[in-house]
């Protein structure tokens, strides 16, 4: 453990906490401008959070510990993810935890808790949202695992920091077929996991089309704020992971001096990804729910091809 690594990890967590709502605001603002609107400004999610955090949470009759625990567990898993995924540094003191399986497991833990909470409310929409989320989760998690396998096979380690370091030492790897296929597969699953178009529409009010929103319909006040914040943090971390795996330049190692540059590089990369995602969302409509497994199965096939090509072509 080094001071640089410790500082960078702390900075990484704080940056994700503070920056995640701004990132969501930025994506909404990009959409608003392209739709000819003025937009609420990139600080609007922070205003929403500030207000929600001071409102009283409600506990609907008949709900138990699963409902009350979910917001805390979701924000907890998001903070752990923000600490272990190599976003600013590859020398995190939590390096042994930054294993591919651990990260996917923590990601799934958050999703499953929220689905259990949705079932706990006993409402029709909660159950519907939970079942849809589980359908997507079952297709997303293996794809993340398999796609990153194709990168870890060459490194000989499932440690994310090791994969990023290896890519830094051999930049041409990014352009290899395995890496490109894995990038395409991961992009699709990140969109699905964070509930963006075309899998889920974050701005919908129509109960029959929602997935993520249907699960949190019963939350209010502070609980809702924690869930919204955690969702924004998961989006930021997953976009950051995508950037770290496929465009790792700028990430700091143990040295303190590289930290400001790493910070700048991270912000630029994630902002560009978010603006790109927001722009693409204007051009596409939400997929019919029964077509979503086809899209995710397609991305799984891409991930499988990535693994095959990393095995045969490397």
């Amino acid at each position: 453990m080094t001071i640089g690594g410790l500082l960078a990890t702390a900075g990484q967590v704080l940056l994700v906490m503070a920056g995640a709502p701004v990132l969501v605001g930025l994506m909404r603002q990009v959409r608003a401008r392209l739709e000819g609107r003025a937009g609420a400004g990139i600080a609007q999610p922070w205003r929403d959070l500030r207000k929600l955090l001071r409102r009283q949470p409600t506990t609907p009759t008949g709900t138990g510990w699963a409902f009350r625990l979910a917001p805390l567990l979701l924000i907890g898993t998001s903070l752990v993810l923000a600490a272990v995924v190599p976003l600013l540094t590859t020398a995190s003191p939590l390096d042994p935890v930054a294993d591919l399986f651990a990260v996917v497991g923590i990601l799934a833990l958050g999703t499953v808790t929220l689905a259990l909470a949705a079932l706990d409310t006993g409402t029709a929409f909660g159950g519907m949202g939970a079942s849809r989320e589980m359908t997507i989760l079952a297709l997303v998690e293996p794809t993340i695992l398999v796609a990153v396998f194709s990168l870890s096979a060459r490194v000989g380690s499932t440690n994310l920091a090791a994969i990023v370091t290896a890519t830094l030492h051999d930049p041409l790897r990014v352009a290899s077929p395995a890496s490109l296929l894995a990038a395409a597969a991961l992009l699709v699953v990140v969109v699905a996991e964070t509930g963006r178009l075309p899998v889920d529409n974050p701005a919908t009010h129509l109960e029959l089309t929602m997935i993520h929103e249907a699960m949190i319909l019963e939350y209010a006040g502070t609980d809702l704020a924690l869930i919204e914040w955690a969702s924004a943090m998961r989006l930021t971390v997953l976009l950051g992971l995508l950037a770290s795996l496929f465009l790792p330049w700028g990430i700091a190692g143990t040295s303190l001096t590289a930290l400001p540059l790493a910070l700048l590089a991270f912000v630029v990369k994630v902002t560009l990804l978010a603006v790109g995602l927001g722009t693409v969302e204007v051009f596409i409509a939400k997929l019919r729910l029964f077509r979503v497994p086809e899209l995710l199965a397609g991305s799984f096939v891409l991930a499988l091809l990535a693994v095959a090509s990393s095995f045969f072509l490397a």
């Binding site: 609107r37 929602m210 929103e213 319909l217 809702l224």
Partner: peptide, 21 residues
């Protein structure tokens, strides 16, 4: 809608009364 765009003032329609102020 885009012309009056009340969202720029920070107002938003939500799907659940629990989310509402």
């Amino acid at each position: 809608g885009p012309v009056y765009d009340a969202e720029r003032y920070g107002a938003r329609l939500v799907a659940s009364p629990r989310h509402a102020d």
